[in-house]
Amino acid sequence: MQPFATPAEDPALREACRLESMGGPVAFSAAGQAELERLFTRYPTREAVVVPALWIAQREFGWISAEVITLVSGLCGVAPSHVYGVVSFYTMFHRRPRGRIHLQLCTNLSCQLRGAEHVLNCLREKLGIELGGTTADGLFSLDEVECLAACELAPVLQVTETRRAENDSLVGPLDGEAARILIDELRVQAEASPAPVASVGPVADSAHRCPGVPGDMPTNMSSGGVRGVTSGGPGRASSGGAH
């Protein structure tokens, strides 16, 4: 029998209720504050701004600490415990620092059917980290996500620059080789610009042509799959596409 790890053995669970500290109080930048003020005019309650405020916070601070929760709690008039509940409920808010580039590999069905597992292994090997881990240089963090609503690009990876929060790019369909090339490219880009990486490529469409070449196909992936298509680019992806 193959090893069967029980949920109970997940050490993260016992830390499930932990919040990290940033070491001292935090405050929004003037721009963040201004954005927040504008947001307050868009909703009938202050509480409704909690999630948008957390987005601003994640952009400004990179992750959500106990201090950030206190800040948002005060601004939105919601008890800190409830803001904490909100933070913990949604998957996109980081409760600890993440690498500069956040790689989220979809491991839901359509991506699994087309080899996400293999891509995951290649990424782990290439980066030398496990799921949930961050590379020693702090450049990459690797997580799995559920279906990204980009199954036609399966297996698909979402690449996000943590501090910019809003430049998520989808890359797919990936295979092992493509994943390795992507990591190299991202590293080169990141080293060239110590400031936040501009983006994975021109943000013309949500998906980026996969840099790889057809290579090692895992057993469960159809060899006939269309490669390199994007949701808006050439190739067959939408009903408007060529066929």
Binding site: S110, C151, G224, V226, S239
Partner: peptide, 14 residues
């Protein structure tokens, strides 16, 4: 609109 994915030759929205 159907989103077709998995083991088809041309996955996409139809």
């Amino acid at each position: 609109l159907f989103s077709v994915s998995g083991h088809v030759v041309r996955p996409g929205v139809y």
